[in-house]
Simulated assay, not measured.
Amino acid sequence: MSFPSTQAVGRGAAWYRGDCHVHSVHSDGELTPKEVAVRARAAGLDFIATTEHNSAAAPGAWGHLAADDFLILLGEEVTTTTGHWLALGINPGEVVDWNHQVGDGLVDKCLDQVHRAGGLCVAAHPHAPYLSGHFMFSFLGFDVVEVWNGLWTSDRPWNADNETALAEWGRSLAADLQTGSWRPAMGNSDTHVEGQIGIPHTVVFAEELSTEAVLAGLRAGRSWIAESADVDVSFTAHADGCVAGVGERLAAHGGQVEVHAAVRGVPEGTVSFNTDRGKVHRSPLPSDGAGAVQWDTTAEDSAFVRIEVRHPNGHVAALTNPIIIT
């Protein structure tokens, strides 16, 4: 098979774990495509995206590595001099031109190319600590922001650059929700070498394990980010007999909203609830890392709610996209 199928059997409508920013020996990575796929499956992932720098996935390199329970999306890391971005879900052999920069007016044409293919445009590692790594483009036209990138980390997949990206994204949510153009967050490993794949990754609710369904879940923000498959999060809001999950809207009809979070895999960590008023509630997790937390609010007090789960040292273990309350 020259290119991977856009459809896998999967588990039907379910939560799927995936890493959408990986490199192999076909750009500047040290792992072969087979080594990437084997390690991705060992890390508990259901899908990955190929994102070689400024080039399409090589014919014949990835197709035979897909399986009924493992999806491989085609993509590209568009590496410009004023920031990098991911083109996810592009056509086989398609290349997005990287010869554009802030101020030349060419990026919109490239974004349109990806959107015409049904793909997703992701602003990558907005505050990466190297030349061209800082994302200088406007977020307008981009679908998703990579707030958590695992490349420049050591013992845990979190650093000051990710903290800055998360804070920037979190501050923009209230204003973006008012205009109806908020951009979901995602996390990826940016794998280049051994031991990086899936640290972190994005957990997305998709109607099926297919390129179209995974991209639809990411685009809608029906997703959250985990540092590894050892971490699990359930996050819902309840009001007036209705339930909403991550990325969904909940009509509270002026009544009380109960927000529930259940976490596994973060010993002695903390769960914080964040709204358009900032961090509004914080609860500890027990020593075994599994716990459930409830917090109550109203639509008047909270336009949205999202959670962050952190280790005792302050490093993020998981974070979610918001539940929007109306």
Rank of each mutant, 00 (worst) to 15 (best):
K109S: 13
K109F: 10
K109V: 09
C110A: 15
L111M: 12
L111Q: 09
L111P: 11
L111C: 02
L111A: 04
L111N: 00
D112K: 11
Q113I: 01
Q113F: 00
Q113M: 03
G118S: 01
G118K: 03
G118V: 02
G118T: 01
G118Q: 05
G119A: 06
L120F: 08
A123F: 08
A124C: 10
H125P: 14
H125G: 04
P126V: 00
P126W: 00
H127M: 13
H127P: 11
A128S: 08
A128K: 10
P129C: 08
L131H: 15
S132N: 15
S132M: 01
G133Q: 03
G133K: 05
H134K: 09
H134C: 08
F135K: 13
M136V: 05
M136E: 15
F137L: 13
F137S: 06
S138N: 12
S138A: 09
S138L: 04
F139N: 14
L140C: 09
G141K: 02
F142G: 08
F142A: 01
D143E: 10
D143R: 12
D143N: 14
D143C: 03
D143Q: 12
V144D: 10
V145Q: 15
E146P: 13
V147G: 05
V147E: 06
W148L: 01
W148T: 05
N149M: 04
N149W: 00
G150I: 02
G150A: 10
L151Q: 07
